[in-house]
């Protein structure tokens, strides 16, 4: 039997969720508004999505965003998975400090991350210039900046996925004739895989959505979608930007739902005797 919820409590819950989601809802609705200016409803249209795709700068920013997101996700997934595996497998006295160091980039304000990366890159550039090499802020700087915060998320998802598994699984594989590489490929990796995929999806959406760190590390010529939205909005909110934001929200939500579905424990999966 369901317990009856107090009406005031459910009203409060609606209020909280409304506060969280109404702005996004308004944004989505107005992306279908047949009016050049926001504020008044002038009928339903999907033309802004067409306008959006026709814009050269949007297409370029989209390509940049996807390239950065895909390559940074690839790198951070490999590195983060290895970190997560290491944290699961080895019990050293460094385990706690290492976990702490992983969580820190998640809670450090983005602005601080952005400024520190900007400084770091100019230091590296200064050092490189002594040898005659140099680089511009752009794709590579943004991409590696994203990797720095993505690794933590991947490592933590992989570790939490493996947390319920006995470390003797690896020994069992070795015992049955598998070399350490084979036991990794045939036992550990398949078990960690949902965590790896979920971590990768999470990393992908984080890169897709990131504005602050990207803004600091992208230089002048390189724009991703969030940066493009920001610079466009400075000139006034236009419906096509609403459409663009709606698309970003959509991709992110789908990715997060997928990540959750992958990670959700199946009933009895970790049942122990």
């Amino acid at each position: 039997m369901m317990r009856r919820t107090h009406p005031a409590l459910s009203a409060w819950a609606w209020l909280v969720y409304g506060f969280l989601y109404l702005p996004i809802l308004v944004l989505i609705i107005f992306s279908f508004n047949d009016s050049k200016f926001g504020g008044t409803w002038a009928g339903f249209t999907t033309k802004w999505y067409g306008v959006l795709l026709a814009r050269e700068d949007v297409r370029e920013a989209l390509t940049n965003t996807l390239l950065v997101a895909l390559s940074s996700t690839l790198i951070s997934t490999v590195l983060g998975t290895l970190v997560g595996l290491g944290l699961w497998r080895y019990s050293t006295r460094f385990r706690l400090p290492l976990t702490f160091l992983l969580v820190t980039p998640i809670v450090i304000p983005d602005v601080v991350m952005g400024v520190s990366l900007l400084m770091f890159y100019s230091l590296v550039r200064g050092g490189l210039e002594l040898t005659g090499w140099t680089f511009e802020n752009g794709f590579w700087t943004v991409m590696f900046a994203h990797v720095t915060f993505q690794i933590s998320y991947v490592a933590l998802t992989v570790r939490s996925r493996l947390a319920g598994y006995d470390r003797s699984l690896e020994e069992a594989a070795r015992d049955l004739g598998a070399s350490s590489v084979q036991s990794f490929l045939r036992v550990i990796l398949p078990l960690a895989l949902p965590g790896v995929l979920a971590g990768a999806l999470l990393a992908f959406t984080l890169s897709l959505d990131d504005f602050v760190v990207t803004y600091f590390t992208s230089g002048s010529g390189f724009r991703t979608l969030p940066v493009l939205i920001y610079t466009s909005v400075k000139k006034g909110v236009t419906p096509d930007i609403n459409a663009l934001s709606t698309l970003l929200v959509l991709v992110t939500v789908v990715a997060i739902i997928a990540a959750n579905a992958i990670m959700r424990p199946r009933p009895g999966r970790r049942g122990e005797a």
Partner: peptide, 29 residues
Amino acid sequence: PPNLRPVNTVFQSYALFPHLSVYDNVAFG
């Protein structure tokens, strides 16, 4: 190394591979 020894172990925690069926577990070695 353990994979090259003519011994096999029954672990206290059983350490069965959870992603494999019973048949595939037994067939692993």
